[in-house]
Design a protein around this nucleic acid. Sequence first.
DNA 1: ACTCATTCTTGAACACGTTCAAAAGTGCAA
DNA 2: TTGCACTTTTGAACGTGTTCAAGAATGAGT
Lengths: 220, 220
Amino acid sequence: MAAKSEQTRQLVADVALKMFREIGFEKTTMRAIAQEAGVSVGNAYYYFASKDELVQELYIQVQDEHAVAATKALEGVQDLAGRLKTVLHTGIDVMTPYHQFGSDFISTAIRPTSPVNPFGEASTAARDASLAIFRSAVDGASPAVAKKLRADLPELLWLAYMGVALFWVYDKSEGQRRTRKLIDGAAPLVARGLSLAKIPGVSKVFDDVLGLVRTVKEDA
Amino acid sequence: MAAKSEQTRQLVADVALKMFREIGFEKTTMRAIAQEAGVSVGNAYYYFASKDELVQELYIQVQDEHAVAATKALEGVQDLAGRLKTVLHTGIDVMTPYHQFGSDFISTAIRPTSPVNPFGEASTAARDASLAIFRSAVDGASPAVAKKLRADLPELLWLAYMGVALFWVYDKSEGQRRTRKLIDGAAPLVARGLSLAKIPGVSKVFDDVLGLVRTVKEDA
DNA sequence: ACTCATTCTTGAACACGTTCAAAAGTGCAA
DNA sequence: TTGCACTTTTGAACGTGTTCAAGAATGAGT
């Protein structure tokens, strides 16, 4: 029997996500969710320990959509700039229905104790999934990315992606036009910048950057 | 008469900041502030429209301290790497008493409607003050920074500083050792990276980066 | 059919940030 | 002194996220 329990859980989650999309984070109160779902407030809390955990539900779903959309869109795109653009654009695509919700999300997510914190423990799975998208974007590129960069690049790009997401949240231009522009401009620049790694004088700086990144990551 | 009113305002602010420092943001309730200050809750709200505005008070104070400390510490430091290090380290210095408070602060600050949002209207003054520190760090450097970079660099460094601050918030190492390491490593790297602007192949990439920055900033 | 441990559900209660009508205080003009 | 407008102060009340003791429902073992 497919757990009556699981049904209730799904119901609450579905109602919550729908309300987040339609009326925003703050106006979606736990009481409203419960009422709309036809359960008691306490019951919603039986399945989700906090409002933040409902946000986590949304986060995971958006992440999944991104993985699917990006994988599909990457087919046939060879060059790094194009692949990077693809991953970033599809990322923004799946987030778009939640744009008005974005600032509340980030505000929630940035709190170290939040289950949605992208750097935190609770979202290791989601982060790894997201990282995997960038890894595939890098690994599948031709001409290939310089070998010494290949290991760390996906993580750095993912970090940049967090920055783009932040930019997007603040982007009040229609359809978030500016964010799209930023992606279209930055992706080729990153690719070109990386190709400079062959120049001797530049190569050393790259090595040091990688060294620093590794050092700082290490003694966490 | 130095306004009894102003005295109350100061009292509330002082008590609040002290409590933020000592027991953190969440545990510092408006009721606790009021009680400790010997006023009613409503009275605290007469002077500060929200708890966020008390955070703004803190933000401004920290900013001021940073400006003073950085200006003093910059004396006699010539090279860009050193000057950058100085500004970043003094920035972390003045924030240190509030480290445990950091994540709540950022979580508050990142909300576009917050008076403390560093990108927002309400903190234009504070941001300009902070920007001025970076501008002076750049302008006072010798050997001088490439002319074409000089206009935009302070803003980009300020942005990087926001990133460092974010890193610091998450830095759980003792005394935030890792953040210090990051600063010591990154500052010379930035300086060296900028000096590459003279190399022809690199120069073009730099130009495009600046072009992109300006484009994206323009049609806000 | 009858336990009874486990899972699920309820709604009242709590502390919080915030609001507001009303009271108290203040200072100046008549 | 009295009157009056203005500023300051109060504390009860509201809606929020969250907790929890208590009760229902469920289902496996007898």
